[in-house]
Design a protein around this nucleic acid. Structure first.
Length: 96
DNA sequence: CATTTGACGCCAA
DNA sequence: TTTGGCGCCAAAT
């Protein structure tokens, strides 16, 4: 009953496990959720399930980009910087 | 029920 | 190195 869809629940669970200052990529979350190729699905799930309990803003792309955010990528970056996450630099990946 | 979209990821040109 | 295209999964329409 509690299982709406294994993936959805698992993804939300994994994301909620992210600690402060840590950032996971969609691919990583997808892999933990049980499907290493469901990175797209992960983004979709988070996008339609913005749970205040889940730090979806700590989930970024594998390229190092922040990706997107229901509130706007800017807000996401802001939140990550505020928590001390290793953000490259805004939206443009400044590959040092 | 089938099709389209979407916060991605990786390979090829 | 950069840009483009394909592949994969789930949810929405």
């Amino acid at each position: 009953m509690a299982l709406v869809s294994d993936f959805r629940t698992k993804v939300l669970d994994v994301v909620s496990q992210i600690k402060v200052g840590e950032t996971l990529s969609y691919g990583e979350v997808a892999r933990r959720a049980g499907s290493p190729k469901a990175a797209r699905a992960v983004g979709n799930i988070l996008n339609k399930n913005f749970n205040p309990q889940i730090p979806c803003h700590r989930v970024i792309r594998a390229d190092g980009q922040v990706g997107g955010y229901n509130r706007g990528g800017k807000a996401k970056i802001r939140r990550l910087k505020q928590e001390g996450a290793k953000l490259v630099f805004g939206l443009t990946s400044a590959k040092v």
